[in-house]
Amino acid sequence: MEKKGYSFTGFALTAICAAIVAAWGAYSISQHNYQSRLAALSVEADQLQTQVKSLEQRLEREQVKPSPVAGRELRSVIQAEGDEILTALKSRDAATLARYVHPQQGLRFTPYSYIDLEKDLVFSVADIPTLFSSDRLYTWGSYDGSGEPIALNFDNYYAKFVYDQNFLAAPQTVFNQVIQRGNTINNFTSAYPRAVSLEYHFAGFDPQYEGMDWKSLKLAFEPVGDTWYLVGIIHEQWTI
């Protein structure tokens, strides 16, 4: 009987020892896997930091570099260029207008204050000189109020949504300020984050409308090196 009891006890001890060894092995494997995962995460973190640094450097390169002219000097440069552009528009001189258009981005036309980057039409420098002579119909957006498509050739669009007033003689010009007028969202800053603006503004024409007949023509400029080019013409007025 004692011999059998001893054998059972020995067997139990052997089983316990085997279980301990197995548990320790599993623990060791788990620790190894844990350490391996930590090492992998560390490598991934280093890679992410490298990517973030690369993106930061890219953003820094793409930011607008300080212009050699600033403050009042920059306003003077943009004002002179804007007046020349409006002179070309007033005289319907598309060839001269084309010389001011951004060589890569072209020129976007926006009929109301809200700039629709997907639907507003953009014309390249090569397209500009023939705009007035073309009878081609374009859809420029939708009319305020009715929502009907603005289907016009450039000549008719120009008469209604570009130079419908003598903006060259506007009593107020606003440099690089976004002023919310009316109830249409003015998203100039988000649509043109790298641009400066020059707005030619009429506060109104008929006193009975108490300023609700205001109109503006806003020009957007972006730099290429030291030169500022026209990228957008935004026509603004009271909307429903």
Score class of each variant (00 low, 15 high):
residue 112 Y to S: 01
residue 78 I to N: 03
residue 63 Q to C: 08
residue 61 R to M: 01
residue 109 F to S: 04
residue 59 L to V: 13
residue 68 P to R: 01
residue 57 Q to M: 13
residue 66 P to S: 05
residue 70 A to E: 12
residue 75 R to L: 12
residue 90 K to Y: 11
residue 74 L to C: 00
residue 125 V to G: 03
residue 58 R to D: 14
residue 95 A to P: 07
residue 79 Q to I: 05
residue 92 R to Y: 07
residue 94 A to I: 08
residue 92 R to P: 00
residue 55 L to H: 08
residue 109 F to G: 05
residue 87 T to F: 04
residue 93 D to T: 02
residue 77 V to H: 13
residue 51 Q to Y: 10
residue 85 I to D: 10
residue 100 Y to F: 15
residue 100 Y to P: 04
residue 116 D to M: 03
residue 121 L to A: 07
residue 50 T to D: 12
residue 126 A to G: 09
residue 95 A to Q: 15
residue 110 T to A: 06
residue 94 A to W: 05
residue 63 Q to Y: 03
residue 123 F to G: 00
residue 56 E to G: 07
residue 110 T to N: 09
residue 106 G to I: 08
residue 61 R to T: 06
residue 86 L to K: 10
residue 92 R to E: 14
residue 66 P to H: 01
residue 124 S to L: 12
residue 106 G to P: 05
residue 96 T to D: 05
residue 69 V to Q: 10
residue 102 H to F: 07
residue 116 D to Y: 06
residue 87 T to A: 11
residue 125 V to S: 01
residue 102 H to E: 06
residue 116 D to E: 06
residue 100 Y to T: 12
residue 93 D to E: 01
residue 113 S to C: 00
residue 54 S to D: 09
residue 64 V to D: 02
residue 118 E to V: 09
residue 98 A to I: 01
residue 79 Q to P: 02
residue 85 I to Y: 06
residue 91 S to D: 11
residue 112 Y to N: 03
residue 75 R to K: 14
residue 110 T to W: 07
residue 57 Q to K: 15
residue 91 S to G: 07
residue 90 K to C: 07
residue 72 R to Q: 14
residue 75 R to W: 11
residue 108 R to G: 08
residue 67 S to L: 03
residue 87 T to M: 11
residue 81 E to V: 12
residue 55 L to V: 06
residue 117 L to P: 10
residue 85 I to Q: 13
residue 81 E to C: 11
residue 76 S to Q: 15
residue 52 V to E: 12
residue 125 V to H: 06
residue 103 P to Q: 01
residue 110 T to G: 02
residue 91 S to V: 09
residue 58 R to E: 14
residue 98 A to L: 01
residue 50 T to Q: 15
residue 109 F to N: 04
residue 49 Q to C: 07
residue 106 G to T: 03
residue 119 K to G: 04
residue 108 R to S: 12
residue 56 E to M: 13
residue 97 L to H: 02
residue 66 P to V: 06
residue 93 D to N: 14
residue 54 S to Y: 00
residue 88 A to N: 00
residue 49 Q to W: 04
residue 88 A to R: 04
residue 63 Q to M: 10
residue 92 R to S: 12
residue 55 L to R: 15
residue 70 A to T: 15
residue 66 P to T: 12
residue 62 E to N: 09
residue 101 V to K: 07
residue 69 V to A: 04
residue 60 E to Y: 12
residue 72 R to D: 14
residue 112 Y to C: 06
residue 51 Q to R: 14
residue 99 R to N: 05
residue 98 A to Y: 09
residue 73 E to R: 10
residue 78 I to W: 01
residue 102 H to C: 03
residue 113 S to V: 04
residue 124 S to V: 09
residue 60 E to R: 15
residue 57 Q to Y: 10
residue 61 R to F: 00
residue 125 V to F: 03
residue 71 G to I: 08
residue 58 R to H: 09
residue 76 S to M: 11
residue 88 A to Q: 00
residue 67 S to E: 00
residue 70 A to Y: 08
residue 75 R to I: 02
residue 73 E to K: 13
residue 65 K to Q: 15
residue 66 P to D: 03
residue 89 L to F: 13
residue 104 Q to I: 13
residue 63 Q to N: 14
residue 79 Q to W: 06
residue 82 G to W: 03
residue 87 T to S: 11
residue 92 R to G: 00
residue 64 V to H: 01
residue 103 P to G: 04
residue 104 Q to F: 11
residue 115 I to W: 02
